[in-house]
Amino acid sequence: MTSAVYPPAVPMRARDHTESTLSRVIPDESELTAGITIRPGRTYGFFTDTSLCIGCKACEVACKEWNALPAQQIGLTANSYDHTRELSAITWRHVTFIEQIEDNPGCRANRLKPFQSHWLMMSDVCKHCKQAGCLDACPTGALFRTEFGTVVVQQDICNGCAYCVPACPFGVVEINFSDGKAHKCTLCYDRLKGGFEPACAKSCPTNSIQFGEVDVLLTRAARRVEKLHALGVDNAYLYGAPGTAGATGGIQQLYCFFLLLDRPEVYNLPVAPQLPSGRVAKSLGTGLAAVAGLGALAAVLMTQQSKAPRPGRKR
């Protein structure tokens, strides 16, 4: 059942488990919550449709409760209703709030565009890039491509070299200085193994975060953009789908891609991010060429000396 009617009516399988106290987990629960069966070997991701996001932060809480992440306790910020500021080592889901209401009271909008408008809310997450800067940069293989096509930091390998931190074009992965390891969203790698939909996608009440196979999500997202354009929401576009903003510079595609309603920079996302590891060979090559040149120079210099010591030099 690939096409997800919004929101999916209660699937027929839900009637197979009607007892109130269950003896064991519902097998392949993702079929009930996301309408798909999770199998290794396929590529899964999120399609975050911000036109449906109501900024309730259920995703932030579900992620923190599932992964037992401590609270950031920053205190009130000046960023509208966003008081957790940014993704970090202990905040793997973060909802951004951007108020866009006209300044003078006379013309503050009352006739709004359909779906989300005038108060942009978007649930930011690790992009699980197809070509991931952090994955390429990780020297220990702690970051690896799982059987579900997601990028995960293996906590039993990472030694906190922190080279993935500057390598990520979206500023997602970060070092937790109290436990000395890198942390980021794992797309609920352990839940996927058990056939469960990731906690944030399952918890999202308005189905703004949709979990599924990436190509299915891409077709659904493209249809959604067309529908929004037809409804007059001409500022809707995909960010992270192949060939769109966010999937540039060798990254090719973000498996967690977005439907945004304003410039990427408004959400602190780069328009044309770069995959840094694409230039390693070229850069190292020029470096080695320079070394070779200097080596040759050294050889030349040292040859002259042995044949003809400089005459008449006395000290």
Binding site: N79, T96, P166, C168, P169, F170, G171, E265, N268
Partner: peptide, 9 residues
């Protein structure tokens, strides 16, 4: 960008 925050770490 987004308030005073930077997009990268």
């Amino acid at each position: 960008g987004y308030y005073d925050l930077t997009p990268i770490k």
